[in-house]
Design a protein around this nucleic acid. Structure first.
Lengths: 234, 234
DNA sequence: TGTAAGAGTAAACGGTGTTCACTCGGATGA
DNA sequence: TCATCCGAGTGAACACCGTTTACTCTTACA
């Protein structure tokens, strides 16, 4: 055991950190991403706003920490769904992962907006690095990847699908740089394409962008999901 | 002519209104949706912030007006692209509409975030009514609908596709309530499904959510676009 | 036991949306 | 022509916000 028992101060500190994040989460749920404010959190905790700077460098850092927690919570929620169908074939487990993602997102619209909405500050700059929250985001994606990997071990892609257009192949350079050749590129391609469809469906539903046409989006979701799975199984 | 020539005061008023919106647009482009502020706009115009309340009820109303203008601008940009291929078959014109949408969105990421990002205030409440901006949004959707209509006039859907699951049929009640039976439900279904995919692709690209895997998203976009068109042509 | 570090506070700076009382000038009607 | 009214704009104020600074007080440790 290299980790000694944490000192009393450390325990108090981590307790305060979680209390701050919980208060922020409460504000997020009741008032949306923009409602998270240091002063409101401090007010909730019976403190003054500058005290929070003992625990987080800025409001932005606090929000990033909350996002990290949310990704971990989403990952656990989704993996529980998959674990509930542990015996099922991988592809149906992928379907349950997708349904779990949709269900969690619909139950937590404010959190979804914070995690997957537009990176508000400069619209793009945040998304480039995002090492803090993206580790958690990568772990979330990992749960999809592993089940997909399992499926492909049982049902390898046909020869034809293994070859990708050269320009498409080259476009995946960032993936190759950071993840190496862990998954063959056609798998990454299928993952990105499927994830994009899943994100589009869920984002449209959570943001209410389909309310002009439909009430219950679930039948549409199921059809699109089956179409995507068919593409994966091909 | 029922409209008399506008008075001098009216002309000054509309000029000020457009100047306010232009200043807001400038702030949007340089600093993202959150950078739009009444005080900054007033500063740009050599005015004080309360003066803007002579022209807009609130910052929210001003932002909604800007969004309306943006939807109109996007619609015109997209229709110009389609008009440039007026002779082409409807389905390839749909493809050009989609490409035009992507191009405009990539060229105007801040505007895209404001128009299609998460409805920030209460995450959902705004999306329910949105009569002001949604008129413009409906006109934008209209340009897709009409070309799709043209295609289906030439290539009617096969009998089998005409029938929709009863639950799916019932889910489209909001559409039937506001638009009646202008388009058969399978067409609306195809539109919603295709639009969802298109939105997912473009949002992911504009928000930079795919940068961990790819640099150039265009090949992926083209493949997805062709897949969707094939579904429409079936 | 002295000391250093951590936790918290009050005050202040500059920023925000919004409201209210007010002035001023141009249009309008008697 | 003159009085009047209304619209545009201002300045001050209120209640928020993030952040920094200087300060106090308690706790842990050498």
């Amino acid at each position: 055991m290299t980790t000694t028992t944490p000192s009393r101060r450390d325990r108090l500190r981590t307790a305060t950190v979680t209390e701050i994040k919980q208060a922020g989460r409460r504000l997020l749920v009741t008032g949306g991403p923009a409602a998270i404010s240091l002063r409101a959190i401090a007010r909730d905790m019976g403190m003054t706003a500058p005290a929070i700077y003992r625990y987080f460098d800025s409001l932005d850092a606090l929000v990033r920490a909350i996002v990290t927690d949310l990704f971990e919570e989403l990952r656990i929620s989704v993996e529980e769904v998959a674990a509930a169908h542990a015996g099922a074939p991988p592809l149906t487990r992928v379907a349950h992962l997708a349904r779990g993602f949709r269900r969690w997102s619909l139950a937590h619209p404010a959190e979804f907006a914070l995690m997957f909405g537009s990176p508000i500050p400069g619209v793009t700059p945040m998304a480039a690095d995002c090492s803090p929250a993206n580790d958690a985001g990568a772990r979330f994606a990992e749960s999809f990847f592993t089940v997909l990997e399992e499926h492909l071990a049982q049902h390898p892609l046909p020869e034809a699908a293994e070859s990708l257009d050269p320009d498409l192949r080259q476009a995946f350079q960032p993936y190759l740089d950071t993840f190496g050749d862990r998954f063959p590129l056609p798998v990454v391609y299928l993952f990105v394409a499927s994830w994009t469809r899943l994100y589009g469906m869920v984002a449209m539903e959570v943001f209410g962008h389909l309310q002009w046409a439909m009430t219950d989006i679930e039948p549409l979701f199921e059809r699109e999901l089956h179409g995507t799975l068919r593409q994966l199984a091909r």
